[in-house]
Design a protein around this nucleic acid. Structure first.
Lengths: 206, 206
DNA sequence: AAATGTGTTGACCGAGCGGTTAACGATTGA
DNA sequence: TCAATCGTTAACCGCTCGGTCAACACATTT
């Protein structure tokens, strides 16, 4: 009688996780109800608690999933290329990852802002990414205001800002900032920016 | 009988607004209850609705308040100084504002991420800030990836990232990233960064 | 055929939510 | 002096929240 699509067994668990991911990214943990998740997943609410202990666990599982793919996405540096190229390659792979997983940074930012209980896991992700940047930049960077950590944070900020502020940029951008061509242009800008920074670091070294 | 401090009349309204501001910044709109606000303001819950129509209005009033001071904080460019100095002055005043109103960006980011109903007001704030940047940078910037809007967004990202990611940076920073000396060092880094970008823009112009 | 285990369900729970209301004391103005 | 207004309160409302539970369908094992 119902118009529901036939549900394969065993996939309910994954559907719940995907729905939770989508909603947490869009509205933040606190603004999402378990009922919302169940409805989007086309699943009975009680089933959510059958597969996941509680709402908080659901968020943790979503983050864990990302943590894994985040680690995989960071391809190791290719030592046969120049440092400049290595940095550009790192930026490219980071942008690729974020474009493919735009929900990830939304959830991460939500958690960071709310100073939730999962900041520890996020910190691990940051440390991982930092060690990769350090690997490549350690020799070029300097001390104090030119310490690697500042460049790491600046890179992160440059990349992430675009996605965070997009909803408020449409007037300035004169259209959807997230369109394919605009994203491409933004990438070019970012590569240009780190090029200037790399030049500055080289000059400082000499 | 109660240990409550004597409350001057008329200040209850402001106390509510301040409490709301503090809590919205710390936990986000959805995660804050009117009871929380009333308790922090040491005020009866019903009084919140006496002064403010509802919870959403309270958030709007908080944002309006910031919108005003944000506009005031942007001192006009001093045409007697060089463009470089004008850009540095703009960065400094933006950093000053954000350090004095760190709750502001937290609330703004929360709203942007949640794509709430107040994005319109935030957009106005962004447009305002953008026009100031454009004023100073219009002649230097170029087209496509070197368009002013990209520099505007990059500046914003560079500045804001520090405050957003601070809670997850303590291991990398080897201590509180928000300490006075670390904030000073970060400022120096940012001035160094925009110096490199300005050099790049000049080179591109030639 | 009986027993067992797994996935799924609707009905239910207490707690907390945003918001309302009627009444009260203090202040003010006629 | 009396009435009106203002700031404040406790009690209450309907509703949604996260989470539980007993029962059920169904497949597998004994």
């Amino acid at each position: 009688m119902s118009g529901n699509a036939p549900k394969k067994k065993g996939e309910a668990s994954r559907r719940i996780l995907r729905a939770a991911e989508e909603l947490f990214a869009a509205k933040g943990f606190a603004a999402v109800s378990v009922r919302d998740i169940a409805q989007l997943a086309e699943v009975n609410k009680a089933l959510v608690f059958y597969y996941y202990e509680n709402k908080a666990t659901l968020l943790r599982k979503v983050l864990e999933q990302y943590y894994t793919s985040h680690a995989e996405a960071l391809s190791p540096a290719d030592p046969t290329t120049s440092l400049r190229e290595q940095v550009h390659a790192l930026l490219t792979s980071y942008l690729d990852f974020i474009e493919d997983n735009s929900r990830y940074i939304h959830i991460v930012q939500h958690e960071l802002l709310a100073n939730g209980e999962n900041v520890g896991m996020i910190r691990e992700g940051m440390n991982l990414l930092f060690s990769r940047v350090q690997e490549v930049l350690a020799d070029m960077a300097g001390d104090g205001p030119l310490h690697v950590r500042h460049f790491f944070l600046s890179f992160s900020g440059l990349v992430v800002a675009y996605f965070t502020y997009a909803p408020a940029l449409d007037e300035i951008w004169d259209g959807d900032p997230l369109s394919a061509s605009n994203r491409r242009e933004r990438r070019e800008h970012l590569h240009w920016v780190i090029d200037q920074l790399l030049s500055g670091m080289e000059a400082n070294q000499a």
